[in-house]
Structure formats: structure tokens, C-alpha cells
Design a protein around this nucleic acid. Structure first.
Lengths: 342, 342
DNA sequence: ATGAAAGCGCTAACAA
DNA sequence: TTGTTAGCGCTTTCAT
């Protein structure tokens, strides 16, 4: 691999001149520029990013840390982060914690030792050790898919209240009056917002959703199954149910089918996320799409901006980007049956 | 962040001594070692990986390049590569080409400029420019999920012939005699192997699979749909069908349902991969599992070994690891109906 | 067993 | 506008 020095020798200039030509930050005469550029082309020179990274303490590298790979939401985050980062000349190091505290710590540490430009976190915990390290190091960081108590870390999220509202409005517009909801873990703020959006919209429209018909899940398939069992076993009446992600919605839907409830004839089901599986099922799941690409675009933008600004202390405005989710109409919602369900 | 120099000063030794203590490659007296280790602990020193990367021309970084994120197979590759790499102290840079030639080139180039230790490719093309670059640079590389014409690049694959055999054997054992198959793109060697495994096993057992009942797909959902349309429209008789990945199998299954064919009562369907969606469907898809974790473990092992050996020219043994797929029995296969299907 | 010094490839003062 | 020099943080001869 050719180095700056090779180019300099070939072009008959100093290495700093070559560096200037490459970085275009300091004026170089047109003539010299031409020579240097020719030399660069001739030996197909590309600056070594490790050397640059050592010198500048950043090297166009972004880290993304996700809690798991099984949920398509997280692979979508990785996908679009990589896509948008690469478009901007950044590469991305990927790390998956599996919600393992130690691994999260190791990951963060290694990323720091690599002089990365910034980190994007999906779903980090409020109490995470990571947050302290982030404070200490001043490393640009963005959190996506949830917010934290402390608001000094930039966040990109969807309008979670709106997602609940959209679900409720759609179901209400079909004529439903009795509802149930399967939430994510209630210690997460966005989950409470989603729930509020759903329940408040329903109540404002005169619909009914009992407290006991709001069942806490954990975003996994099985918790959708269990929630339906609970709802049915305790005799809750509902014709419309919203699960706060697609996996739970699918679990719920399958379970209802097993228990003889027809979707959407007897119960309408909605999810959130719009994962691939949601349209491969029969009936296809009506859901609410998260704008994954937009989320990542914003997150990457923030990292790049922060990293270029340097850590200008004054610049501590709170950054919070809120994006709008969108209804995806498919086959699991319909008007409620004429008479009340069992 | 503390540096080697800080440790050296604190311990009252030279930086080279500290380096030796860390790398344990050159003897250091027990006493000095103790001092240095204490100093390291005291200031919580961790060697900067960028500096090390510059100096050593490798920095415990592995690249993985996939063609897309939509197929769960590829995210699984990323998942387990990261998992196993991290276990060995490596981080991974992820790149997705979207089958875009230019991006593949840029990605490779950037990885090289980062002095990575090696690259894992999923599904690179035979004619790829990348292969030439790989030759030139001597960078450790492994290809997974397909083989290349040229065999000097290490490969980790499943026994694709066996996957076809397993599918056929299962269907035959249920009593099926008439078959169809939806393949991947036939220009890929593993696809031809899978097809051979399936067809040859069927024929050896006295079953029937017409040439025209082997339909070429492209591994995507839609091609499964189209294949079923073709098979049904052209009046092919079959009670057992194998699609060479789960997406096509699901497409096929949904399409058959739409056209009034009951799965598994009238037709048995099998896939390959064992993606998450396959068990969320109803009926759950009977399929063949790829040992994703094992594939990645092997790939990472090879990279690490190759990268540590250095490029010992003599050491050019062909590396090819073949792993066994495994039948996953679920609900889409059953004995064929008593009378022939339409 | 240890230290001094050079250098990986780059950028950024500082001089000229 | 350009070159010289130092240095990012580490490893590795080469001395001692």
C-alpha cells in the first residue's frame, strides 16, 4: 500500500503538501495540486485511516451498540446506520450486548480504544455504567429507540404517544369500542407514552379500556401469547387489541387463532414496527411503521455534527429528534362483529 | 485516557518495559512486572488499539461484508460473527453491499485502509473485483455461504448436497412420490448441489421429479409465489415441494393457500435456513436448519489463525470447512393425500 | 532484564 | 504557498 511519503517523493513535494492537497483545508497552488493529484492517481494512493485516526483521534468510524440481533428492529437500525454512515464516508463497528452488562462494558471500552468518532446506542439502560463513561469521555453519543431520564444525551425517537393514538384512532374508526393493549416493559418511558397515547385517545372518544386489559409484555413473541391467555382467561371483553410491537402482536394473533378467535372477524389486531414477518403472515398484520431509515439518518447526522464541532462545552443544547410513525393498513383489522365477543 | 507513557512514568520504567509486560512476549523480571501491573491497574490503562494497529498493521478488527440485511441469514452471519469475534477480543466492522459493485469496492478499500486483520464475505461473486484485490493484498479472507470456482480462498459452507438429501428423505419417508423444487439462482454452485442432492435422492428412491418441476427462484419471497403459480398453471403433479430457502418456502406456502391448496394436507412444504419467521407462521414451517453459529465460529477461527500465522506462503493449503444442516420438523409436512392432487 | 531510539503513516504547528 | 519538525501511542530492534 502506497503512503503519503511515496506520493510526496513522486510529486517532488513534501508530505505536508500532499496532506494539504488531500484535506483541502489549507491553500496549495494550482500547479502543485495538479502534480500531487496526478501522483495520487498514478500510484492509487488512499490515506491510511489508522494513521489518521491516531493523529486526529478520530477516523470516520462510528460504533453502534444493540441489545440483540433477534429483533428485526435492531437489525434495521444496524442496516440503516451502516447505509447512511457509509454514504458519508464512515464505517461502522457493530456490537451486541445481549443485555449482558459485562459485554456492554467491554464493548464500550474497546470502542473508546479505537478512537471512534461516536456511538449510537439502541435501548441502553438508564442505570448503565456506560452513561458515566460517556460523561467522562465526552464522546459523541446518540440514543435511539428510547429516551433516558437524563436528557443531555441526544436522542432520536418516534413520537410514541402518536403511535398509540394512531392505533386507537384506526380501531375506533372501524367502530370498535372495547379495547385491550399489550405493552412493552413499563419501566421504559416510551412504553408508558405509547400506552398513554392509546388509552387516552380511546377514552376521549368514549371507548372502553379497563386497566386490567392493559397487559405488560416484554416485546417478545411469547409475551403476546401469554397476554392473550391472561385476557381471555380473565374474561376481558375486547374487539380491538394493540400490541406495542409486531412480535407480540403475532404471538397474540396466533394464540387467539389457537383459542378459536377469528382475526379480524372477531378481534382486530394491530402491532408496531412493521417488520418483514408482518406481511408474510396470513392474515397480514396491520401495524404501524417506524421510520427506521429516518431514525438512523438523524442519528448518524448528529454523531457527525457533534464529532466535527469538537466538544464545545457551550454547545450543550439538548438534542432530541422526534419522528412520526405511520399506519400500515393490512388484513388484521376490520369492523367489530355485530354482537359482543365471548 | 492514560497512555503507555503514563504507566511507564508511574512505574519508574521505560515504555518498552511496559509494552513487554502487556504483551508477555519478552521476559520481564517478576518484580518489575508487579510494579508495572500495579501502575496499569492504578490508572486503569488500556492500550490504544489505533496506535497498536498502526504499528502492527493489524488491530484485532475483522470486517464482515454481506450483500443485504433483509435476509435473516445474513443478519445471523453478522450476529454470530460479532459474538464469536468479541469473545476472542476482536471487534467487527460491518459492511453491506446491497449487491452494489461500487459499494463493494469502496467497502473493501476502506477496510484495507483500516489495517483490519481479515474479512469474512457472505456470498461474494466469482467475478468480483474484490477477489483480485484480495490476491494482491494477502489479507486473510474467508467466504461463507457459498464457494467460489477458485478454491484458494478459505470457505465455510454447509453440506448443500446433504440439505437436498435431507429434504428428499424426509418427504419420501412420509410417503411422497411426486416432487417439485424451488431453487436459488442456478449460477451459484451451492444451489446446483442442493438441487442435485434433492433430485438424486428422489430418483434413487424411485420417486418422480420432472425437470420442469424444478423451478429457478432468486431466494426471495416473490419468487416462491411465482414458482407455485408456474407449477400449478402448467399442471405439474406434486405432493411434496422443497424451496431452497425459507423465504421462498413461505411465499410458496402462502400462494398455495391462496389458490386453495391445503398445506400440509394436500401438499407438504419444506424450506431451508430456519429463520425466525418460519415458526411464527401457521402452520409452522418444516425446514432445514443451517448451523449459523458454527459457520461463523469457523470463519472467525480461520481469520484469526491466518492473521496470526502471517502470510507464510508455503502455508497455502486449501481450507474448506463443511458443516451439516439439520432437519427441523414442524407442521408443513405430512403424508400425501390418498388420491393424486389436482 | 531493561532502556534508548526509531518508526508505523499521518497532521499540524512553526518557519521560511 | 511550501517545507521542516514534532508527535499521536504503540512495538521493536539494538544496545547495554
Amino acid at each position: 500500500m502506497a503512503s503519503l511519503k511515496d506520493v510526496a517523493r513522486l510529486a517532488g513535494v513534501s508530505t505536508s503538501t500532499v496532506s494539504r492537497v488531500i484535506n483541502k483545508n489549507i491553500p496549495v497552488s494550482e500547479e502543485t495540486t495538479a502534480h500531487v493529484e496526478k501522483a495520487i492517481r498514478d500510484i492509487n494512493f488512499k490515506p491510511n485511516l489508522v494513521a489518521r485516526g491516531l493523529r486526529m483521534k478520530k477516523a470516520k468510524l462510528i460504533g453502534i451498540v444493540i441489545p440483540e440481533f433477534q429483533h428485526e428492529t435492531f437489525t434495521s437500525f444496524v442496516r440503516f446506520t451502516e447505509e447512511y454512515a457509509e454514504l458519508n464516508g464512515y464505517n461502522v463497528i457493530i456490537g451486541c450486548t445481549n443485555s449482558n452488562y459485562d459485554k456492554e462494558e467491554r464493548l464500550l471500552e474497546n470502542l473508546l480504544r479505537r478512537n471512534i468518532d461516536g456511538i449510537i446506542f439502541a435501548r441502553i439502560s438508564d442505570k448503565s455504567h456506560t452513561l458515566k463513561v460517556l460523561d467522562r469521555t465526552q464522546l459523541p453519543a446518540v440514543i435511539i429507540d428510547r429516551t433516558l431520564e437524563r436528557e443531555d444525551i441526544p436522542a432520536v425517537v418516534i413520537d410514541n404517544y402518536a403511535s398509540g393514538r394512531i392505533a386507537a384512532e384506526h380501531l375506533l374508526s372501524l367502530g370498535h369500542r372495547n379495547f385491550a393493549c399489550i405493552t412493552g416493559p413499563l419501566d421504559i418511558a416510551i412504553v408508558r407514552e405509547r400506552t398513554a397515547g392509546f388509552c387516552e385517545t380511546i377514552k376521549a372518544a368514549g371507548g372502553t379500556i379497563e386497566d386490567k386489559a392493559v397487559v405488560e409484555g416484554n416485546f417478545k413473541y411469547d409475551s403476546g401469547v401469554r397476554a392473550v391467555d391472561f385476557l381471555l382467561d380473565s374474561g376481558k371483553k375486547f374487539t380491538g387489541i394493540w400490541a406495542q410491537n409486531d412480535y407480540m402482536a403475532i404471538g397474540a394473533m396466533n394464540r387467539m387463532a389457537e383459542r378459536g378467535l377469528k382475526v379480524p372477524d372477531e378481534v382486530s389486531v394491530m402491532g408496531l414496527d412493521n417488520i418483514e414477518t408482518s406481511w408474510m403472515l396470513r392474515p397480514k398484520l396491520t401495524t404501524i411503521a417506524q421510520p427506521f431509515r429516518e431514525i438512523c439518518r438523524n442519528a448518524v447526522d448528529i454523531i457527525i455534527r457533534l464529532s466535527q464541532e469538537g466538544s464545545q462545552e457551550e454547545n450543550k443544547e439538548k438534542i432530541k429528534v422526534v419522528l412520526q410513525p405511520e399506519l400500515v393498513l393490512r388484513e388484521t383489522t376490520a369492523a367489530p362483529p355485530a354482537k359482543k365477543p365471548a
